[in-house]
Design a protein around this nucleic acid. Structure first.
Lengths: 205, 205
DNA sequence: ACATTTTTATGATCATGCTCATTTTATCGT
DNA sequence: ACGATAAAATGAGCATGATCATAAAAATGT
């Protein structure tokens, strides 16, 4: 069973590799699962033994990249809170860079804050991991309790906005994204640093 | 041609009405275009003479609701900036309320900040209208120039986060959403009120 | 080494959003 | 009123992500 297990991993890796190439070359929506199967040398239905959906295929690459970014960031944490958060997000973006050509539709569907019927579990896991990591960073800077749902929701909104902007940022060195990340992070830090503002009671939806 | 023109409008309205009912009852993704056609008493292909896509059908309802909200808000503007922005957003949510059961996937796809190949023009128009309206409100409060891309991006991120949260808010009177809107608005106001923070230059993506 | 059982691969098939050639209906000129 | 032309309706058909019964292959027990 050893050799077979190895062959399976190779097959899985080959599918991911070919899918990545095609996604980058043509875009996510313009690449059909049949294209991928052909390129990987397997039957159309076989891929679905390895990945439950095309979306999961893409999100596996994203999740792996983000995990690498998290690992890269570990250790080099040590500045102010805003600096650390910036570094954390920047590490993720650096690792996502090679996938940038096809990320738009994938991140939109899999990391969206809108609750969905058929969630892509890989995407959901990536979100939870990212939020957990963010909370760790907060904890290291003296925030004893986890942020409430308002702060967490705002964080994820801002982060998704950053991702969205970054996926199609044409400025020289993504300077525009850099400024946006900087601003978003500072905004978030401002939010969780007091000014907890629980007043406005007259407004009604 | 008069009577016929009227009949066409009726047909369009009937399609929208039946589609809305089905979307609300079963959800957007669980309603097929064939279902809608059957309910509206037209052939499957006929609907696409009225709406270029199922997504456009749903976004037409959303856009109409948001336009009503904007109109409702007109006039009753007159408090502080944050109050006005809150009222503006709340008016939209009130009008969207009947559509809430199916809004998730629709808003996710059509208002997403991620740039897309095949944009739904109705959704794009709704976004532009909303942002324009928001800028009008700012102008009324003494902001002479339009917010830059950073502020605009952050506004839209926060707004989408609010929409996403609100679509599945189970708290009694959407109190949780209310708090989120309040917080998001105040955050945005803080952002555009000075502290333009263009310093951090050492960070690099 | 063979029979049995479990795992994996396969491609026909399905569901569904959408297209388009064809048919039907309405409008217009005379 | 009638033929010609424009507009609209129709449903067969397509593309594609995913499923599933079946076939092939591998693992296991003796």
């Amino acid at each position: 069973m050893r050799i077979t297990e190895q062959a399976k991993q190779q097959c899985r890796a080959r599918i991911l590799e070919k899918a990545s190439e095609l996604f980058c070359a043509r875009g996510f929506d313009q690449t059909t699962t049949r294209d991928i199967a052909l390129a990987a040398g397997v039957a159309a239905g076989t891929m679905f033994n390895y990945f439950p959906s095309k979306e999961t295929m893409a999100m596996t690459m994203v999740s792996d990249a983000l995990a690498e970014g998290e690992e890269e960031f570990q250790g080099r944490t040590g500045g102010e809170l805003a600096e650390d958060l910036f570094g954390f997000i920047a590490s993720g973006l650096r690792r996502l860079r090679p996938l940038r050509p096809f990320l738009g539709p994938v991140l939109e569907r899999s990391l969206s804050p809108f609750p969905r019927k058929n969630v892509c579990p890989v995407g959901e896991a990536a979100r939870q991991r990212h939020l957990g990591f963010m909370q760790q960073i907060l904890a290291r800077h003296g925030f004893s309790s986890a942020p409430d749902y308002v702060a967490t929701t705002i964080y994820w909104s801002l982060y998704l906005g950053v991702l969205a902007f970054w996926t199609s940022d044409l400025s020289p060195n993504q300077e525009a994204s850099q400024a946006l990340v900087d601003y978003s992070v500072r905004t978030f830090v401002h939010i969780i640093s007091g000014s907890a503002g629980a007043d406005g009671g007259e407004h009604v939806l």
